[in-house]
């Protein structure tokens, strides 16, 4: 077994195990770091395959993206630190079946498929060939990706705005009930005020 094979199997095991742990940890922040580990392992496999630019780009992109994700976890989640056990899932059996079915089907394609063996020729610089493609024949595709990203930025700013076309974005917003279909959580102030003799006429 060569060094490349050994590194590949270690990285593949890390990528799959960390990917699985994303959905099996109590802490949302730890989940985003497990996902980062999975991406870094895949990036190392890309480096082994001589896709130097893509592997390194994956490292940088995912490091930043997972930091943003961890920040969002802390802003929105009820259990970011993992102090309580947590398992927030629905239709888990169906989801597990879909995942296993997809794995079996795609592995079947991998094992029984008939793929040609045409490795990267010696002397080809993957980074140079990618750069020539991006700024040559595939320039329209590359530029379209840039325009799409710009459209995304504008759409994201519009979606997250405090004020929409129809008034405040959080108008009439109430917290969800503690039980499904129950009263909104954290709203006993109205009753307190009535007991204290304040009368509000609506």
């Amino acid at each position: 077994m060569t060094f490349v094979d050994l590194t590949f199997f270690v990285c593949a095991a890390i990528a799959i195990y960390a990917g699985w742990r994303v959905f099996r940890t109590d802490s949302m922040v730890r989940a985003s770091f497990f996902l980062l580990i999975s991406f870094i392992a895949v990036g190392i496999i890309m480096l082994l395959l001589a896709a130097v630019y893509l592997g390194v780009a994956l490292f940088f992109m995912m490091a930043v993206e997972m930091m943003v994700m961890a920040l969002f976890m802390m802003m929105f989640m009820m259990n970011p630190a993992g102090l309580n056990p947590m398992n927030m899932v629905h239709q888990e059996k169906v989801a597990m079946g879909i995942g296993i079915a997809a794995f079996v089907a795609l592995s079947g394609v991998a094992v029984f498929g008939d793929f040609p063996s045409r490795p990267v020729p010696d002397g080809l610089d993957p980074v140079v060939s990618l750069g020539k493609e991006l700024l040559g024949n595939s320039m329209l595709v590359f530029e379209s990706a840039g325009v799409t990203l710009l459209a995304t930025m504008i759409g994201v700013v519009a979606m997250t705005s405090h004020r929409g076309r129809f008034g405040e974005a959080n108008e009439g917003s109430v917290p969800p009930g503690l039980e499904p279909g129950g009263d909104p959580a954290g709203k006993p102030q109205e009753n307190d005020q009535k007991q204290q003799g304040h009368h509000h006429h609506h």
Partner: peptide, 28 residues
């Protein structure tokens, strides 16, 4: 072996996307 690893990642991802209740976990 590469494609089997990719299939495993896709399968785990499908499980997460279909089962998680939180939007951020779904995105993971």
């Amino acid at each position: 072996s590469l494609l089997i690893v990719a299939a495993a990642l896709i399968g785990i991802g499908l499980y997460g996307a279909f089962s998680q209740q939180s939007f951020v976990m779904l995105m993971m």
